[in-house]
């Protein structure tokens, strides 16, 4: 072996912002590499859903699921809901899967924690990176749900309120990513399968994705229980922004829940993450 005569490195200017930017650059590189496999996975579920409910069933004559003639098409109901559930699913998976690898396999978390930033900032970086993936996941669902439908089943969607749309999509992504980090750091890694079965699946099925929250009036208990599901506020917020004619929650309610939830979960996840990493 040749003798390693090591030249000193170029002068490094490691400041917190530079290090943070480099960590995000690493996420961007990985995301670019895995783009197809990651986002195909996210898209399959909503695409199949709109395909069956906005195309196949109406063609079969079973399309009167939501509203009769003159009422909103089912696809109109679905657009905000499916965008919201994609954001949640993608952001949570984007934080939980790598975290499980890092905590379990080779304990590589100890290596990531050697990056010259305080550990809580590492948690924030994980939340931001996953939120970005959630946001991309949500944006990619738009074309799918807008264009896949049978004749006469087109969704009636227009952006009625840009600020609300942007705030709900951004904060919703952060909320989901922070929630994912919290669950990932609290849960025993062997329980991840359980997490998907008993947390994520009910959360998306009952997240007011397939019906507006106000339609639950007839099932009062479910309407109240649903208030504990963060996805409900994202779906309803997107409804307010995209399909204002469909009944939806008042803005103060979903904004308070989404923004307040983001702050709360980020704070909690940062703490649990730091406890998990620093022993």
């Amino acid at each position: 072996m040749t003798a390693p005569v090591l030249a000193p490195p170029p002068p490094a200017r490691a400041t917190l912002p530079r290090t943070f930017a480099a960590m995000m650059a690493r996420e961007a590189r990985v995301m670019r590499k895995n783009f197809l496999s990651t986002f195909v996975r996210v898209l399959v579920q909503p695409v199949m859903f709109v395909f069956v409910f906005a195309y196949v069933l109406p063609k079969l004559g079973g399309g009167a699921m939501a509203g009769g003639p003159g009422g909103p098409t089912f696809s109109t109901i679905l657009v905000p809901g499916l965008v919201g559930s994609s954001i949640i699913m993608q952001a949570m998976m984007a934080v939980i899967f790598p975290l499980m690898m890092e905590l379990n396999w080779q304990k590589s978390i100890t290596d990531r924690a050697l990056a010259p930033v305080p550990i809580p900032l590492l948690a924030v970086q994980k939340i931001l990176a996953a939120a970005l993936q959630g946001l991309i996941g949500g944006l990619l669902v738009f074309p799918a749900v807008l264009f896949i439908h049978a004749d006469g089943q087109a969704p009636e969607v227009h952006v009625a309120n840009w600020p609300v749309l942007i705030v709900v999509m951004l904060a919703g992504s952060l909320l989901a990513a922070a929630g994912g980090l919290l669950l990932g750091t609290l849960l025993n890694p062997q329980k991840v399968q359980v997490l998907f079965a008993i947390v994520l699946l009910p959360m998306t099925m009952l997240g007011c994705v397939y019906y507006p929250w106000s339609a639950l009036e007839d099932i009062r208990w479910l309407q109240i229980v649903s208030l504990f599901n963060p996805l409900v506020y994202i779906s309803e917020g997107l409804r307010a922004a995209l399909t204002p004619d469909i009944p939806h929650m008042p803005a103060w309610a979903f904004l308070l829940a989404v923004l307040g939830g983001t702050v709360l979960l980020t704070w909690a996840a940062t703490r649990t993450f730091t406890k998990r990493v620093l022993t």
Binding site: P9, P10, A12, R13, A14, T15, R18, T19, A22, M23, A25, R26, R29, V30, K33, N34, M101, Q106, K107, S108, T110, D111, L114, A115, P116
Partner: peptide, 27 residues
């Protein structure tokens, strides 16, 4: 720090592992 386990980043190539580590440290 060189840890006992292989803690290289499996999402990156060998060269990228070094590249990003350098960037984390300000290069």
């Amino acid at each position: 720090v060189v840890s006992q386990n292989n803690t290289l980043d499996s999402d990156l190539t060998v060269a990228e592992n070094l590249e990003f580590r350098g960037r984390f440290f300000g290069l």
